[in-house]
Nucleic acid binder design. Structure first.
Lengths: 214, 214, 214, 214
DNA sequence: GATGAATGAGTCTTCATTCAT
DNA sequence: GATGAATGAAGACTCATTCAT
């Protein structure tokens, strides 16, 4: 178990360094110095620098994937809203606990490699799929308006990524409030509800929102 | 003007290479080989690799910044919705015309450098500001519901970044439809309007959306 | 201690190469090839080419500085002449033992760098100071004639530098004889003593030296 | 004659730049920028950088060589001392008028090249020869003490080079006084004449100079 | 003759990885 | 298993020189 502890220690320091400098500017010397191991020892634990990075990335993607669950409709499930809220809370919780991992995933993982790019793409697609399936279910249940649920899923993904990025950068956020804002935005957008009710955007020409000021 | 043309040629090839490989994996040899110039010639046009990259990034940020305009309320302005739609169209248009530049900005520019990171951060803040001021105006005009407009602005930014990222990756998108989906999502969210009308989310406990399936 | 030996080996080869080619024409490839090490190994021992050169120069300046001592007047000191002679012997001995270091110092160190130029300037000033203070003492003791001791000090420095330069270039010198010639020249100049005795140059118009041949 | 004027102009600027930066750090761009000519034009006037430098060096060596003349004994010649003094004045005059050329010769010319090194060596040998032949004549005329005139010649050369170096670096020198100090030093050394009269150094054990303080 | 854009050989330096101890 | 000295491929950048206009 000694081995696992040492390995974890390297991962811990590498995480920090990758988050701050990105993959290329972070170097093995930095990592082993921080981790307090010898150069050769590093290669006993990791095949190479890339594999180390990959492992960190996998950790981030894996944990997040677990924390995001498809909305289910079953007698013993919480309300869709609460399931949604719980998803967001789990994500934000992770981001706050693992700022460095979040930074790695959001800022430093793209464009390193065909393989990694694909891995990240698949992750996001998977998340988007969960969202989309939840939306499709919502449409069936008459909770979600008719729309291109694939695109809507990516919209939601974009909202979460952006807010999460803000949270990971800035310490001073009320994460509970942010979750509620995301929920409100995702569910009802920014327009005043009464301007939209019963009307698609395209046909809502009469509403004040959409006409020029006089 | 010959000089500008040659410089532009280098920029053109470099753009492609940076977009595909990212800053670090792209090397000068790649660029000059593609551009068909000698090593020294490169340094006739650009002080160094970084400056070349910086210029491409500035081009992306600059063009996008110009294409995104604050919503104005004046007798001779189009409706807010049309202004919004026009913004989105201009952005998507740029992204489709400059896929590589978009990829550079979205995937390869972060974490290279304190200076560049700051530049990008400022760019997004500026965009977020435009959105926020538009939202604030909307609130004043009773078009936009009461909310934390800063957070909402970042939500919108997130939506656009994500969809734009999709567009830049995938050729096969109906950009007009995407714009409309973004509009619909940003304005009204995903929930069926009648479930929300006249009620904040928090107090809408009675509505079917929010209760568990029976 | 292995490390020091390897470092010393690099220094040894670098010394030779710098002495022959000068700083700029000597390249790292030369040095590592001669030293029989890999490129990267070089940078294990030296931060860069300049630091290597600086170290060699410092070695030369340091050793010479130690070998040149101010003339002291004390009951247990050798005669001033012997102290002088000892200084010169120590210098010549160094030069013969370290021809390359001498060549580096005399021929290749000037004009590389503000910092190095200053370092060399300070070294010579320090030597000149030692000589001047010795001369001042000599004046006090009525051993040295009244003169601008600063200028005289630089004259002596010039003599030593030039002869030392000759020695370092040419193998075939009787160093003992050279030291005595330097001593004789520095003490009594080239004029026949009887032509100068009791008279300053300026007023020695009657002496045969200074009049035109008849 | 236009050509010669332009050429001279380049030489003038190059002189300054070589003097300040040395051969390697001075670059063609510096020179042509200062001289106000195009890059290609430079190569109309000079085969290459080295030839330009060589020409400047030759100029220095040539002028100095002309200014240093062997002491002659003839009824219509000035006294040996005056001939000596005139030599020194001509040299110092040149140095003051051509500080940059002096710096090039003294600090930046050595170690560039086998050929240039030889050229400089020959120059100094030639000067030393003139001095030596003058000394030999002085010995014949009983004006100069018996000594190794070759070594003495290099001593004198060393004195002049060092003082001239000082002069070229520092503006604030009374060149007349310096010449007299060099003369005094070269003719009579630093020892008080009465301590030396009638005695070689080796046998002067009784004199106060050479004994230890009590 | 003059120009200056283009050239490409040459240099230093970095850094992930290996391997003998 | 641990170490860290050694490796060398790879990369950015410089600059004297050329040559088409």
């Amino acid at each position: 178990m000694e081995r696992q502890a040492r390995r974890a220690n390297v991962l811990r320091h590498a995480k920090r360094i990758f988050a701050r400098k990105g993959y290329h500017r972070a170097n093995i010397t930095d990592i082993i110095t921080r981790a307090g191991i010898a150069r050769g020892t590093f290669y006993l634990y990791f095949r190479n620098k890339r594999e180390l990075f990959e492992e960190l990335l996998a950790q981030a993607l894996g944990e997040l994937n677990e924390r995001i669950r498809r909305i289910k409709m079953a007698p013993d499930e919480p309300s869709p809203l609460d399931q949604l809220r719980a998803n967001l809370h789990r994500v934000v919780e992770f981001v706050l606990a693992e700022r460095d991992l979040t930074a790695i995933m959001l800022n430093h993982a793209m464009g390193l490699d065909r393989v990694l790019d694909a891995r990240i793409g698949e992750f996001y697609d998977e998340i988007a799929n969960k969202i989309q399936r939840s939306l499709d279910l919502g449409v069936q249940m008459n909770l979600v308006r008719e729309c291109d649920t694939r695109t809507a899923a990516y919209c939601i993904l974009g909202v979460v990524k952006e807010i999460v990025g803000q949270v990971s950068r800035d310490r001073r956020h009320d994460s509970g409030a942010l979750v509620e804002e995301m929920l409100a935005f995702g569910l009802s957008g920014v327009a005043r509800p009464e301007l939209l009710s019963g009307a698609g955007i395209d046909s809502a020409e009469g509403a004040g929102f959409f006409s020029a000021a006089k």
